[in-house]
Structures are given as structure tokens and as C-alpha cells.
Simulated assay, not measured.
Amino acid sequence: MEPLDLTDPAVVADPYPAFARARAQAPVQWHEGLGMWLAFTHAECDAVLRDRRLGRIWRDREPAGRFAAFNLVHRNALLEMEPPDHTRLRRLVSAAFARGHVERLRPWVQDLAAGLVDGLVERSGGTDPVDVVGGLAEVLPVAVIAELLGVPDADRPRLRPWSNAIVRMYEYGRTAADEDAAERAAEEFVTYLRGLAAERRRAPREDLLSSLVRVRDADGDRLTEDELVTTCVLLLNAGHEATVNVTGNGLLALQRHPGQLARLRAYPGLLPTAVEELMRFDPPLQLFERTATEDVGIGGVTVRRGQKVAALLGAAARDPAASTDPDTLDVARRDDPHVSFGAGVHFCVGAPLARVELQAAFGALLARTSRLEPGGPPVRRPGFVIRGLAELPVVLG
């Protein structure tokens, strides 16, 4: 079988047939081009995410002088740490989240989603296509994260471009210009957040950034300046990318399965289940790497110490050993053990917030429209790792 080419436009557009072919060959396979093992089944992907011998081991991008800010925001990131550092940092971040910030925002998120959908409906008027990605999917989660952290309204338009530039570094086939843009964005973002954190130290507010500045654990430990800044960058980048892409991917899936869209309209109580199914059906993150800290047997192969192995989350999602008829969208699905939020110690700390946002977005689209019809061909983002749409024209009425 030809090796999986993650830069092939056909694979980027629809990776699932290629995943199925690879899964039929072996659950874990070596990819020479990427220099790592790839896991294609749900069981093996789940094991990659949970096995403590497979860790997130950050190595600075080289040359270090070229990527100083990018390396800083990853070297100190919860996502790139292993215990005991990960345990300490996650405990502090979770303590700040536990102050009720997510639930206090739920009514505000629902109102914001309703207003955004109403604006799209007005512009569409039941006849003209409007872009749901640019008008809802991208706007809602950035506004929510900004509100959660306490970013002033005037500064919020800067957040999405910074995030877009940084996450391009995760893609294969990126250009030198992409790398330069990522470093500039990281440097600007870090500088901005240091200033905002200093303001919150002088004058705390009822926002998450103030809680992160103040939080201490039972031993009196607190976040360092770099950990604080990095946590805010992670919350924005990881915290909104999933919502943006599940909203776009999910609405496209519902349009291509009109029976499921009608079912969800008829039974809105299915919304929480439907959100989980949309995350499974077309995950927003397709590949997540781990590094072996010792030799590990998985899927019939041995991942040697120092080698990388990646869980292909979209392949896991479509594994018939984990879900019945996995290529079928079912908004009432119960056998939905998706790993789109990860698993194990690195399970997404922002998952509750993402669920609030997604339920608000799809709830508003269903409750405040009678038409959700395609308004033109969707435009897919070019990368494989972050899977999403750049545009989704829809006629709303």
C-alpha cells in the first residue's frame, strides 16, 4: 500500500477512505516520511493517549534564536508537559477554572450565539448565501475566550490572527513564511499578555486571568509568569480551534445528512448527544503525537525509546470495532467513545467550555432558523492536522 500522504489534497479533503485502507493493513504502521509510527484503530489510539510511557516531550524548534517566542509558549505549556510538572500546572489551572467561570458564562454564550445567528439570517433573508464560518464559528469562541480571560473589547480582533499564525506551525509542508509569521505572532501575543497580566495584578477583576494571577495550591505554589502567559495562549489556541472547526465541519455534515438535521430539529433534546457525534464524525484535530520514554509494545509493533507515535483521531473515530456503522452520522448515537478531546492526563481542560459553546451555536442555528441550505461549495482549510473549513456558504431563513 502507498504510504499515507498527509499533504495530498485528496487526503486533506477526505482522509477517511485512506484511514480505512490503512486500518485494514495493520493497527500501527511506520511512516518513513514523517519518521514516526501512526496508530489507525480506536484501541491503539486510546492506548497512545493513555500509556504513561508515551509522553508529550517538547523539543525546541531549531534554530532556537529564530523561534524564541514560539518555543517559550510551548516549553511552558500544559499540553507539552508530563508529570510531575504537568500535575502541578494542571492542578493550578483547574483550580482557577473551578471558580465557576464556565457556567457563569453559559447564558451570555447562548445570547451571543442567538445574536450572531439572527444577524446571519437577516443578511441572508432566505435567498442569499452567508458564511457561517466567518459569521458564527470563528466569532463565537474567540469572543467567549476573550470574555473569559477578560481581554478588552478593543483588543479582541487581534486574537484570532495570532492563533491562526501559531497553529500553522503544526502542519506538515509549512513554508518559511509560515514559520516567520508564527514566531511574530507568538512574540506579539506574549508581549500583550504580559502587559494584561500586569494590569490584573494591580487591579484584579472577576475574570479567569485574574484567577490565574491569584491562584495558589495547598503548598502555596503558584503559576510562574511564563506559565501564566503560556496557559492563556493555550486556552485561546486550543480552546477556540476545536469549536470553530466542529461548528463548520458539523454543520456541513448535517447538511449532507438532511435526515439527521430534520431529526435534530424535531428532537432538540438530542443536542448534547449530537454535539458529541459531530465531534466524532469529523474531528477538528486529526493527529496527536507522543514520544516513547522507554520501549513500548503497541498494536503488534515496538515503539523504541525516543521514537514518536501519533494517534490519528479521525481514524479512531471511524473504527468499526469501536462504533456501529461509524461512517454513518447518527445524532442519537450512544456508542460514541470519541477521543476528540484526548484521553488520559492530557484530556482537554477546556472540554466543558467547548461543549457550552457548541451547544449554544448549534442550538441557535436550529432554534432561530427554518432553513439551513447549502449556499455554495465549502472551502476547506489546506492543512491536515487542524481539520476545518475556511468558508461555509449557507442560505438561512
Rank of each mutant, 00 (worst) to 15 (best):
F70W: 15
S340L: 04
S340K: 03
G239S: 04
R53W: 02
D85S: 10
A143L: 15
R56P: 00
A292H: 02
M36I: 01
A18F: 14
D153N: 04
A253G: 13
D14A: 15
D60N: 15
V385G: 04
H346E: 06
A39K: 01
A292C: 11
V379P: 05
R184S: 15
H257E: 08
L251M: 14
A154S: 14
G350S: 10
Y16T: 13
A182V: 04
D8G: 07
S211N: 05
D336V: 12
P382D: 07
V275F: 01
V139K: 09
D330W: 00
R160F: 14
A317D: 07
E276M: 02
G300F: 10
T224V: 06
R201N: 15
V349R: 02
G299V: 02
V102H: 08
Q260S: 01
R368H: 11
R263Q: 09
V331Y: 00
G383D: 13
P272G: 01
R318W: 13
L6D: 02
V379G: 08
H31E: 10
A98E: 08
E183S: 09
A197T: 11
P84M: 08
F97D: 04
G115T: 06
A24V: 09
L236Y: 14
P352D: 07
L209S: 07
G297A: 15
E277T: 06
A367F: 00
L353M: 12
W30L: 06
L372G: 01
L358R: 00
R381W: 07
R90S: 13
R368N: 03
T369P: 03
D51K: 05
L365H: 01
D319E: 08
D131F: 00
H101F: 15
A185N: 08
A113S: 10
R381S: 13
E289Y: 12
L223F: 11
E206R: 14
G344E: 06
I166A: 11
P320T: 14
A315E: 05
A354K: 03
R256G: 07
T293C: 03
A354G: 10
L353C: 10
I57R: 14
Y267W: 07
R160M: 08
Q286C: 10
R21D: 11
R200Y: 11
Q29A: 14
L209A: 15
D14Y: 07
P284I: 11
Q286W: 08
G135H: 00
R174K: 14
L285Q: 13
L358N: 01
P326S: 10
L329V: 06
D330E: 05
V301G: 04
M279T: 08
E206M: 00
A262C: 01
V93Q: 03
D85Q: 13
R21A: 13
V142E: 05
P3K: 02
F341H: 06
T293Q: 07
E241A: 11
F19E: 09
D330L: 01
G125W: 00
G375E: 02
A96E: 06
E62I: 08
A176V: 07
H346D: 09
R106A: 15
L209K: 04
L49N: 05
P83R: 13
L54Q: 02
R304Q: 13
P9E: 04
W30H: 05
E103C: 04
L193Q: 05
Q260Y: 00
T293I: 12
A18Q: 11
A143G: 09
A24M: 03
G126R: 00
A242L: 15
M36C: 13
E187F: 08
L4G: 03
L209D: 03
R214W: 11
